[in-house]
Design a protein around this nucleic acid. Structure first.
Length: 575
RNA sequence: CGGGGUGUAGCGCAGCCUGGUAGCGCAACUGCUUUGGGAGCAGUGGGUCGGGAGUUCGAAUCUCUCCACCCCGACCA
């Protein structure tokens, strides 16, 4: 591709509403443009990357035996009513009516459609196992779209659906997809992790998420330092502390703590560690009452765990401030277990504390040297908190380490949920009617692009892994429009690369070198060759890898071996 | 949906308080000079100041209203 004939429209300044790096760089490099909240066009440069992601997915899905098809994004309400999801889904499901006033929706996912296809097409176990997949545009009317294509309303997803005659078959199909996902993510050249996504309570490894690692990731994932354990942090059990609780020391006493309403304020005000403080959160109960959740000061409440507790409202709601005052008689910021009248749950770690600081249930007062059993009722403890770095791993092997990730893939077993509700069945070997066991496997295609940038960039711009780069090589001739020698050498090299199948961008624009370099760095081309009169005279060219610190001069003889290394798919067929 | 904020040229902003008919930087276009890390000079084009209504001789500016977008909280690829 010649840059003069390509739509390279880069921006120097960051659009003000782009918050995260990937969104900024995608806008600045001219990959995407926004039309409305969460709605984007993919410009030619961005589309090149998107197509690479799709192609890798397609090849590995095909290799794994899945069959590609394409389902509609406009879906009739009847199917969703059959599965029951027409009523279950909230406003995230974009509903509309056509000219005949028939209800429909724009598909956020395709279990209903694929099950409908299956029940029409398949009627014998002999046709199984079967795995249909598609790469298609989805729509989810997100409450708050943000971060560019990371969380957009319209997005492209690869979704696959497996069908098997029994549970073992489903497990096998799932395992095949697990392997296919590993192959896919390996090929992207991104750092990623597969983690358990199910709650330990349900058991089994029936659900896994694939995360691209990035400091800016929205999810926290935990790993065992020595074992294989890896899971989304929200699902990880926090083990109770081992060993005996320390014996009570000094007697309980009240202290004035005006204005200290947070653990940080309390800890610094009283000069004690947050670990010695107790945090008491008040949430709504499912019967209109209030429930206290008690944690160690430095710990965070885990919403999922709290919602599972008997009596706690689900979804979890923090109680209204006025209601707390009305029931407890004091404001938040000074609540504690001593004399607390409402139902309470205490986290294991909080229950293991002694001589701690907690709210006195009186405004602007706290209690010191409080002890369970002695000063208030002995706590029955439960698991309430998020694990933190250094906690013991639930598999008993080492400690937990925490990394941040971006969820880009999810595989799980659906069982017979849709086949039963939608009365899809096949005949088994005995001629009996059986609802097939399904699995469901998603990859956020558009999100992968953003995640790749989030993980690989510097202050100059994007640093694409080779597998995703829109161009593999940039040729930057200096004085292309002035020096006949440079022009000839650049054109020669360009033609040679194209003949060899190198995905090459020749910057033949009449620009100053600095501008060319900045553009190529910004759009993240992995390799760069500079040709100039100076180098030509010495039979040399200059080479620099995108993440190399410095460029190096090389003799022309090295060109052939360099080009050989850059050969990839011949997708650049337009001059 | 609740709370906070912003809408002025493609992008980033000033002007608004104190009404007098719109400006700066970048980008774009033309010419000359320049050519190894976002050049210099000269010139050009582009805005119903988010929409509507009102107050006024006169509204980007004051009032009302609608809309859009962004940020902080509950979903998910």
């Amino acid at each position: 591709m010649r840059a003069s004939r390509y739509h390279l429209f880069t921006l120097k300044e960051n659009p003000v509403d782009a918050e995260i790096i990937s969104h900024q760089l995608m806008l600045r490099s001219g990959m995407i443009r926004r039309h409305a909240a969460g709605i984007y066009s993919w410009l030619p440069l961005g589309l090149r990357v998107l197509r690479k992601v799709e192609q890798i997915i397609r090849e590995e899905m095909d290799r794994a035996g899945a069959l590609e098809l394409l389902m509609p994004s406009f879906q009739p309400a009847e199917l969703w009513q059959e599965s029951g999801r027409w009523d279950q889904f909230g406003p995230e499901l974009l509903r509309l009516t056509d000219r005949h006033n028939r209800d429909a929706c724009i598909g956020p996912t395709h279990e209903e459609i694929v099950t409908d296809i299956f029940r029409r097409e398949v009627n014998s176990y002999r046709q199984l196992p079967l795995n249909f997949y598609q790469i298609q545009t989805k729509f989810r009317d997100e409450i708050r779209p943000r971060f560019g294509v990371m969380r957009s309303r319209e997005f492209i997803m690869k979704d696959a659906y497996s069908f098997d005659i029994d549970k073992d078959g489903m497990q096998h199909s799932y395992d095949v997809m697990d392997q296919a996902y590993i192959a896919i993510f390996d090929r992207f050249g991104l750092e990623y992790r597969a983690v358990n996504a199910d709650s330990g309570a349900i058991g089994g490894s029936t659900s896994q998420e694939f995360h691209v690692l990035a400091d800016s990731g929205e999810d926290a994932i935990a790993f065992s330092s020595e074992g294989q354990f890896a899971a989304n942090i929200e699902t990880v059990e926090a083990l109770p502390p081992t060993g005996e609780r320390a014996a009570p020391g000094a007697t309980m006493q009240s202290v004035d703590t005006p204005g200290m309403h947070s653990i940080e304020a309390l800890a610094s005000g009283l000069k004690v560690a947050p670990q010695k403080c107790l945090k008491t959160l008040i949430v709504d109960a499912d019967d209109d009452g209030l429930i206290a959740l008690i944690l160690r000061g430095d710990h965070e409440l885990n919403t999922l765990k709290a919602e599972r507790l008997d009596g706690v409202a689900s979804p979890l709601r923090m109680a209204q401030r006025d209601k707390i005052k009305q029931v407890l008689g004091n404001d938040i910021g000074s609540i504690g277990p001593v004399g607390l009248t409402i139902k309470r749950y205490v986290d294991h770690s909080a229950a293991a504390m002694s001589d701690f600081v907690c709210g006195a249930n009186q405004d602007d007062k706290h209690l010191q040297n409080v002890n369970w059993g002695r000063d208030c009722d002995e706590a029955v403890s439960v698991d309430l908190r998020n694990i933190i770095d250094g906690d013991p791993s639930p598999d008993g092997k080492g400690q937990l380490r925490i990394l941040r990730g971006i969820e880009v893939g999810h595989i799980f077993q659906l069982g017979q949920k849709y086949s039963e509700s939608m009365q899809s069945s096949v005949l088994d070997m005995q001629g009996k009617t059986v609802a097939p066991f399904m699995g469901c496997y998603g990859i956020g295609v558009t999100r992968i692009v953003a995640a790749a940038i989030e993980q690989n960039h510097d202050d100059r711009g994007i640093i694409w892994p080779a597998a995703l780069a829109p161009f593999m090589l940039a040729i930057c001739p200096i004085n292309y429009h002035k020096s006949a020698a440079v022009k000839e050498a650049a054109d020669d090299l360009y033609q040679r690369c194209r003949a060899q199948g190198v995905n090459v961008l020749l910057d033949d624009r009449a620009l100053r070198p600095g501008v060319m370099f900045s553009d190529m760095d910004l759009i993240g081309v992995p390799h760069r060759i500079v040709l100039s009169d100076r180098g030509l005279g010495a039979q040399q060219f200059e080479y620099k890898g995108r993440s190399d610190q410095d460029a190096q001069d090389m003799p022309f003889d090295n060109l052939t071996s360099l080009i050989d290394k850059l050969v990839c798919d011949p997708c650049d067929t337009v001059s």
